[in-house]
Every structure is written in C-alpha cells, then in structure tokens.
Computed example of a mutant assay.
Amino acid sequence: MSRNKNEQQVDLEKFNDAPSLFGYELIRDILIPNLLGTDMHEILYWAGKELARQYPLQNRQDIILFFDKAGFGSIELSKDQRTKQVYTLSGEIVQARLEHVQPSFNLEAGFLAEQIQMQDNLYTEALTEVNIKTKIITFIVKSDTQDRLSIEEPLTHFILNDTKDKKNKFFEQGESILPSRSSKYER
C-alpha cells in the first residue's frame, strides 16, 4: 500500500480509556431522545450516515475497529451475500443500554450503511432488529447492484489498526493507523 505524504498516524492505544457507561447512556439514551423527540430514529440514522462521511474508512476491518473504538459495541459480519449482509452488534455497552431503556441503534445503522455504500459504490441501506432476550442487535444491510453510485472519493479517509491484535493478517502487514490521509480508497 502506498502512503501519501499528508498521512498522519495516531496510536489508537491512547483511545483505550473506556468512558463511563452511565455517562454514555445518559447522553445517547436520555438527552438525545429528549432533544430529538419523535423524529429521533430518522435523525439518528441520517446522523450516522453523515458521521460516516466525516470518517470514511478504507475497508470492512476498519469498520469493526471503528465500532469498537467509538464505543458502539462489538460488530461482526455473520452473513455475507451478494446484495445483503447481516451484522451483529453485541458487547457490554449494548447490554447496558438495553437493560435500562429502549435505545435506538439507528446511528450505528446509518454509519454502517454509509461506510459500505462508499466502499462498494452501491446504494445501500440498513435495517435494525433488536433482540432484547439475547441482547444482540442485528443490522441487515442491503445494496442495490442495479444502482451504481458515482460517489466522489473523499480527500481523506481513515484507516484503523489496533496494534494489540496480531492474529489478523491485516494487522500483521502493518497496514496503517488512524487517521490517515490518502487521495484514493485503496482496496
């Protein structure tokens, strides 16, 4: 992978301090719903898409790392088909949020849909299913292969690398660290 001279490297280890779950829940599940009211789910979905545009990621592995570092939870691809992908979101933060309120995970859904849309250049949307019993969130991500987008590539994109995970080949190759600047998406 070629490096642009404008790239910056940031050690993700400095982002390892976990925020207070109470503080996170207070903002995400009490304050924001009060501010947004009945339009909360739609606004959060589009806010997630905008957040993805602000932090365009290079690949699916970077999405997984972003979810972890952003405190969204642990996301993994559980089903991959040509036009449909199913992701599951779990973890301590997801369990904590589900125990106290009926939280919205539309911010995460919008973020995921937009990242995949930008990476694949296909119109993409995500649906959210909440399973309170198992405390797992499912995102059903669908892409329209007939509707190719002409998306301008961002001037910068972020490539994540968690230096603790040496088992994954992606990391062993020493790809790159957040944030990184590049003029093109590299696949």
Rank of each mutant, 00 (worst) to 15 (best):
106 N>V: 06
106 N>M: 14
106 N>S: 11
106 N>K: 14
107 L>K: 10
107 L>R: 09
108 E>S: 14
108 E>A: 15
108 E>H: 13
108 E>M: 13
108 E>I: 10
108 E>G: 13
108 E>Q: 15
108 E>V: 10
109 A>V: 12
109 A>G: 15
109 A>I: 09
109 A>K: 08
109 A>F: 09
110 G>S: 07
110 G>R: 00
110 G>W: 02
110 G>D: 00
110 G>E: 00
110 G>K: 01
111 F>P: 05
111 F>M: 13
112 L>M: 13
112 L>I: 12
112 L>H: 04
112 L>A: 12
112 L>S: 06
112 L>F: 10
112 L>G: 02
113 A>Q: 04
113 A>R: 01
113 A>N: 06
113 A>T: 04
113 A>D: 01
113 A>I: 04
113 A>H: 05
113 A>C: 07
114 E>C: 13
114 E>Q: 15
114 E>K: 14
114 E>I: 06
114 E>D: 11
114 E>L: 10
114 E>Y: 11
114 E>F: 09
114 E>S: 12
115 Q>S: 11
115 Q>N: 14
115 Q>F: 08
115 Q>M: 14
115 Q>C: 13
116 I>S: 03
116 I>Y: 01
116 I>W: 05
116 I>Q: 04
116 I>G: 01
116 I>P: 05
117 Q>E: 15
117 Q>S: 15
117 Q>T: 09
117 Q>R: 15
117 Q>L: 09
117 Q>I: 08
118 M>F: 07
118 M>L: 10
118 M>A: 10
118 M>S: 11
118 M>T: 09
118 M>Q: 14
118 M>C: 10
118 M>Y: 07
119 Q>V: 01
119 Q>D: 05
119 Q>L: 12
119 Q>Y: 03
119 Q>S: 05
120 D>G: 07
120 D>P: 05
120 D>I: 08
121 N>W: 05
121 N>R: 07
121 N>T: 05
121 N>M: 06
121 N>V: 01
121 N>L: 04
122 L>C: 15
122 L>Y: 14
122 L>T: 10
122 L>P: 08
122 L>A: 13
123 Y>A: 12
123 Y>V: 11
123 Y>Q: 15
123 Y>W: 13
124 T>C: 07
124 T>Y: 02
124 T>P: 03
124 T>M: 01
125 E>S: 13
125 E>A: 11
125 E>T: 14
125 E>P: 04
125 E>N: 12
125 E>D: 12
126 A>R: 02
126 A>G: 01
126 A>S: 01
127 L>D: 11
127 L>K: 07
127 L>R: 04
127 L>T: 05
127 L>S: 08
127 L>F: 06
129 E>Y: 11
129 E>G: 08
129 E>D: 12
129 E>V: 12
129 E>P: 06
130 V>L: 00
130 V>F: 04
131 N>M: 06
131 N>P: 07
131 N>Q: 02
131 N>W: 02
131 N>H: 05
131 N>T: 03
132 I>Q: 14
132 I>W: 07
132 I>V: 12
132 I>M: 08
132 I>C: 08
132 I>K: 13
133 K>R: 02
134 T>F: 00
134 T>I: 02
134 T>V: 01
134 T>S: 04
134 T>M: 02
135 K>Q: 11
135 K>G: 01
135 K>A: 05
135 K>D: 01
